[in-house]
Structure formats: C-alpha cells, structure tokens
C-alpha cells in the first residue's frame, strides 16, 4: 500500500485527534464533506464534534482558533486555499503572532495552507505565502517536501506551543507517495541534505526540492555533483546547515516558488552573504517565480514557476561564474 502526501496529512490529523483531546479541526467544508481536497475525509465521523464546518469567515476562523488556543486547546485551521488566508491575515499576524510576546500566554495553533501552483490554478488558487508569514516575528513556518515530512511535521506543528503556518503543497498532494510513515523525524527546524554533492548547493523547500533534485540528476549526466538542501522549516531557518553546505561547494543557488521580493530566497542569500561571504567562489544566485500574478494557462504557469529545466539552466550559469 502506498500513502500519498495528502493521505499523510489526513493520517497525521487523525493521529493528533486520537492522541490529544485538545485537538480540533476548523475550516470550510471539512466536516461530513471531508474538505475541498479530502484532507479530513471521514474524520468528522470518527471524531464527532471535533471536525467543524466553518462559515466563510477567515478572519473569525483564525480568531476563534486563537481564543481556543488561549484556553488550552490545540486547534488546526484548514484554509481552503492558502490564497484565502489573506482574509485572516490580521488575526494571524497581529493577534496569534504577537500574543506570547505581549502577554506571556502561548498561542498553540496550526493554520494549514494548501499552497502553491497546480496547472489551471490561476492567480487566486496558486499562491505561495511562506515569505509573507515568515516576515512576522512569532510565527513558525513549515514547508514540508516529502510524504514522511508532511506527516511528522504536522504532528510536530500540533505539539508546538507557537502558532505554526503549515504550507502543504497542492502539487505534491497526489504525486508523491511513500510505502510507510516514519516514527522518527529530524529535530524541529533542521534542514536536510537531500542529495549530497560538491560542485554547487541548491537550497530549496516544498515542491521546489523535487525540481532541484531533477535538475541535479540532469547535471550529473554532465559530470556535475550538485548538493540539494531541503529547508523543511523556513522559519526558524537552519542557517548552519546552509553554511556548512556552501562551505563544501562554494556555490549557491536558492530556488523558491514564491516571488523574489523580500522572500525566503532573498533571506537565505542575505544570510550566506553576511555570515559566509568567504565561503563563496561565485556570487550567490536565486531563482524565483516570475514577477507577475500566477497565470492560469498551463503553458504560462509552467514558465512562471521554476522547473527542473530552469533550475538546471540557472545551475549551469552558476557553475560558469
């Protein structure tokens, strides 16, 4: 039996509900219907009263989760699409994120964001929002790239006392499969060297890890040995693992499906430039989505986001610098 990325999300929530009576799930169409993507399929039946349909009120959905978290619950909010979380932005960044610093009361909640582009998704069902949320102090931002990680990291998110923005990638929902789910996980906030190499480092996260791996495979045909680092959690960021990798390879490309301005890729480059300038043999590079809204048509979308071939091109250029 193989388990998809999406099923791993469902199973993590099932386990969280089973193991912790403080957990409940709140979001649109997630009850009997099982959610727009079926990430809560059958959970309302299995855990009566703990998987609740919400009105189309993202602000109040997050507000309710905050109030419940303050009272000691562990709410998981499902946004129907990451893009709609902007309607709950105020509660996330101004109330959830500030609560512990202001009052000393922790705010343990998880906001699940079905993120990133899929063919035909268009401008309002495709966004990557990790950089936006990572900007605000007080939010943990997770961006799992594998079936195993999406399972263990969602459980980790529920266990954390801080608000967690959980960016799960829709493009990976059905594509990725694993034979079984792990019991062990990397420590919280640790990046993973997914593919070791010596000629250049690609730092990526979420769906871009897979584009980076495919590009690395392509370049191996030409004799290059590319290291791929999966950030896993973009905030807090594991600068140590990034710097150690750059120390081995001397070259850095950061790949992100998000837009370039003030994003995670920019942050990684800023950190490496400031803390590891001497490790670099070439100027650090980044490859982001293009600077337009995410286009609808698959032909445009496929060029808007970084892909294995555009990552491979960027790597070739980097290797010649």
């Amino acid at each position: 039996m193989s388990i998809t990325y999406l099923e791993a999300i469902r199973l993590a929530q099932q386990r969280a509900l089973a193991e912790d009576p403080r957990v409940f799930i709140y979001g649109q169409d997630i009850g009997a219907f099982g959610g727009a993507f079926k990430a809560t399929k059958n959970l309302a039946k299995e855990f009566p009263g703990r998987v609740l349909d919400a009105p189309i009120s993202e602000d109040a959905i997050v507000g309710l989760a905050i109030g419940a978290a303050v009272e000691g619950m562990r709410p998981i909010v499902e946004m129907q699409f990451a893009d709609f979380s902007t309607c709950g932005l105020n509660q996330i960044v101004n109330q959830a994120a500030t609560l512990y610093y202001r009052t000393g009361t922790p705010c343990p909640l998880v906001v699940r964001l079905p993120s990133g582009g899929t063919p035909g998704g268009g401008p309002f069902h495709s966004q990557s929002m990790e950089s936006l949320y990572a900007h605000y102090p007080g939010l943990v931002v997770m961006t799992p790239a594998t079936v195993e990680d999406v399972y263990t990291m969602l459980l980790e998110a529920v266990a954390l006392d801080d608000p967690v923005i959980f960016c799960e990638h829709k493009f990976l929902y059905y594509h990725l499969k694993a034979e079984k789910l792990p019991e062990e996980a990397l420590p919280f906030g640790k990046a993973r060297i997914t593919r070791p190499g010596r000629d250049a480092t690609v730092v990526a996260y979420s769906a871009m890890v897979h584009e980076a791996l495919a590009a690395a495979e392509e370049l191996s045909q030409d004799g290059y040995d590319i290291e791929v680092v999966d950030l896993r959690t973009v905030k807090p960021i594991d600068t140590d693992t990034i710097l150690a990798s750059v120390a081995r390879t001397g070259r850095l490309l950061v790949v992100s499906e998000d837009w370039p301005w003030g994003g995670v890729a920019a942050e990684v480059i800023a950190r490496v430039a400031a803390e590891g300038f001497g490790l670099l043999d070439a100027p650090p590079q980044r490859l982001n989505a293009r600077e337009t809204p995410v286009p609808y048509h698959p032909a445009l979308w496929g060029t808007h986001r970084p892909t294995a071939s555009s990552v491979a091109n960027s790597l070739r250029q980097l290797l010649e610098l």
């Binding site: 602000d59 309710l64 419940a68």
Partner: peptide, 21 residues
Amino acid sequence: MISHLGAMVSTVCGGLVAKRF
C-alpha cells in the same frame, strides 16, 4: 485587545468553544 477593531469578537468565540469542548 489588539488595536484592530472587531478582532476580539471571534477570539471570545474561541474561548467559549474551548469551554464547550
């Protein structure tokens, strides 16, 4: 309270939902 007016209404809802749970 946070400054953003209206924000506390749903927060209070959440506290009451927790008590109901």
